[in-house]
């Protein structure tokens, strides 16, 4: 078995979920949104938004008109971004340690 067998299986599973299953996800409000709606404070969530630079708000890509396709592409990109960000972040721990060992 080659070295990265598990990594490939695991990332493929994630991509299948994000690309092929996500267009079929329920678009109903989630638990918290639903509570906010029935208890009448949903609007306060829309009043204050500090961060307005999201590239893919609502897991959609603005210029792709097909709803399902838009979600699929956003899911694909998000999964890859999370993978790479996490890979880079956890490498920091190793780099520090190697530096200490070589000192």
């Amino acid at each position: 078995m080659f070295k990265y067998r598990s990594t490939v299986i695991f990332i493929l599973l994630s991509l299948v979920l994000a690309v092929f299953i996500s267009p079929f996800a329920s678009s109903s409000p989630d638990g918290l949104e639903w509570v906010a709606e029935i208890k009448g404070f949903l609007s306060s969530g829309e009043e204050i938004i500090y961060w307005t630079h999201s590239l893919m708000p609502d897991y959609r890509i603005a210029f792709i008109s097909g709803e399902g396709l838009s979600t699929s592409v956003a899911g694909f990109l998000g999964t890859i971004i999370c993978f790479i960000a996490s890979l880079l972040f956890f490498r920091i721990f190793l780099r520090k340690r190697k530096k200490l060992q070589s000192d």
Binding site: G75, F83, A85, S86, F90
Partner: peptide, 21 residues
């Protein structure tokens, strides 16, 4: 580390899948 990164990606992907309750 590659599997930790995969888990991050998996959790992100699986969080997109809203199921009706």
């Amino acid at each position: 580390i590659p599997l930790i990164a995969c888990s991050t990606a998996f959790i992100f992907a699986a969080q997109m899948l809203n199921f009706p309750v």
